[in-house]
Amino acid sequence: MYENYIKRKLDVAFALVLILIAAPIMIACALLIKCESEGPILFQQTRLGKYNRVFKVIKFRTMRIQTLDAGQELTDRQRITKVGAFLRKTSIDELPQLFNILMGEMSFIGPRPLLPQYLTLYDQNQQRRHEVTSGISGWAQVNGRNAISWDEKFKLDVYYVDHISFIVDFKIFFLTIYQVLRRKDVDHSRVDTMPFFKGEPE
């Protein structure tokens, strides 16, 4: 009842308000991204959401599209632009996901949507993270974010599935704001991309 009705209505209402408020910021980001490097403004990647449904998650592009320099393959860290590094550290790169929320593909709060190829690597318990709508922030993000292992993240995701409620979402929402402002648990993990999940506990 809560997730399908109350939470969905709250998501749509807040997403509409935030899109209007953040519009100048998003326009400025688009201009900066376009001025700094060639390529599209937005980055889209296939992810899995609730009930394993496939969708395209939308973010601001934070990396150069070039993968080679003088014949040498660039690492993800080398490809991140100056603007992109700032967007990642401040989580502004996530703002376009407000449109994913409007389309019903994501929620403000829920397990982060991950790559489809991970699905066959989950154990039975880890797969339960897909019983609820994916979110921009979640219980794992406010309890370590990228500073914890995949195994710990999945345990926190499943904890959220078992305890989803307005009170829990309210707590995660404000903890997210606190951590973004403090840049808590944002070390090199938000500048570098996360290592791929290989199906083994870390």
Rank of each mutant, 00 (worst) to 15 (best):
S137A: 10
E105I: 09
A15K: 00
L18H: 00
F99T: 10
S149Q: 12
K153V: 00
F60H: 07
R53Y: 00
S165F: 00
L181A: 15
E3W: 01
K171P: 05
R145H: 13
Q66F: 14
G110I: 07
E200N: 15
P24H: 11
Q97D: 13
F108K: 01
Y5T: 07
V54C: 03
M63N: 00
I6H: 04
A23K: 13
M26S: 10
K56T: 04
E152L: 11
A140S: 03
H188Y: 12
K82C: 13
A13S: 04
S165P: 02
K82M: 08
I92W: 01
A30M: 10
D162T: 06
L181Y: 06
L10H: 06
I167P: 12
F154V: 02
D162E: 09
M103K: 06
R47L: 07
L18P: 05
N125D: 10
A22G: 08
S107C: 10
G199V: 14
V132P: 00
V83G: 01
Q66D: 12
Y118F: 08
F174E: 15
V161T: 12
I177M: 15
D76R: 09
D151W: 01
A13C: 02
G138H: 02
D187R: 14
A23P: 14
T46N: 09
G138M: 03
E38V: 07
F173E: 01
F174N: 11
L114V: 04
L115V: 09
Q141F: 15
R112E: 10
Q127G: 10
Q45G: 05
M103E: 08
I172H: 04
N125Q: 08
S107W: 03
R64H: 15
I21W: 09
L121M: 07
R53W: 03
L31H: 06
P195G: 03
I41P: 02
A85Y: 00
I27N: 05
R64T: 11
R53C: 14
E105A: 03
M63S: 01
P113N: 14
N52K: 14
N146F: 01
T75K: 09
S107M: 04
K184I: 10
D76P: 13
A147N: 09
D169G: 04
L156A: 12
G84W: 04
R8Y: 01
P40W: 09
R182Q: 14
Y122M: 07
I33D: 02
Y178F: 11
L10G: 13
R47N: 03
S107E: 05
E105Q: 15
A22R: 00
C29S: 10
A23R: 10
E36R: 13
T176F: 00
L156K: 02
R112C: 10
Q179A: 11
R61M: 06
C29L: 11
S137R: 15
Q127H: 11
A85H: 05
I6P: 04
K56I: 02
K153T: 08
E131L: 14
Y159M: 05
R79A: 12
L119D: 15
Q66S: 13
Y160L: 03
T67I: 08
A85T: 04
I25A: 12
L121W: 03
S149V: 11
F14K: 00
S137N: 08
F173V: 06
T120E: 13
T176V: 07
S149R: 12
I136L: 15
W150A: 00
K82Y: 14
D93F: 02
